[in-house]
Design a protein around this nucleic acid. Structure first.
Lengths: 101, 101
DNA sequence: TTGATATGTTAGCCATTGCTTACGTAAGTG
DNA sequence: CACTTACGTAAGCAATGGCTAACATATCAA
């Protein structure tokens, strides 16, 4: 799981992001997630698979239901990628400023 | 520019991410960016347009060349979105833990 | 102006992907 | 056991998107 590509692809779809945002509020089973989202339940399952394989959400079985929740792992990986790029840019700006002296 | 959708869509393509990463190292004109990337220069221009409209890179004209550089704005917006989701999840975990007591 | 350099834009093609419908599966209930 | 509930999977379709080739534009130099 969880290369950068998979993470950004997962978060690039509006429906998937909506699911992700609701799971950030609180853990939920698939059926409840499907309500209030204008796509069918199978579509939700497919989206959850993408989010899960990216490491952005986690599943826990409870009887016949599967409780999905936000997975810190994927969030952290995405954040660290952006931080890395940001730090690179800072170093670059600094180097450029010193060359200007 | 710069709704969350546009940002994640921009970063979800490997070629665009490669351009973004190189611009994080240092500012560059289009021609130099196109070298070392296995797509044609027009494709690079199209990708840069997407990154620019997302607020992830900025342009500055220098004669016939256009120098692209990383734009902190888009990076910051993406980071803050992830932080927001992460904080939501923390609140949720906390509330769930208190209900368990 | 003429030419060269550097870049953006357009049209069209092919692969990807998000959606629905239909089906498969597994855990509870009578 | 049969039945229901909750969910995942597969097939097929329509829309999106990234790519190339060809063209348009703009700046500088001679």
């Amino acid at each position: 799981m969880a290369n950068i590509s998979t993470l950004f692809v997962a978060l690039s779809d509006p429906t998937r992001r909506k699911l992700f945002e609701r799971l950030a509020m609180r853990a939920m089973p698939v059926g409840e997630l499907a309500k209030g989202i204008p796509v069918t339940r199978p579509a939700v399952s497919q989206h959850l698979k993408v989010l899960r394989e990216a490491g952005l959400v986690a599943v826990e079985q409870d009887g016949t239901r599967r409780i999905y929740s936000l997975d810190p792992k994927g969030v952290e990986l995405t954040r660290s990628y952006l931080d890395r790029m940001w730090n690179r840019a800072l170093l670059g700006f600094k180097a450029a400023a010193e060359r200007t002296d």
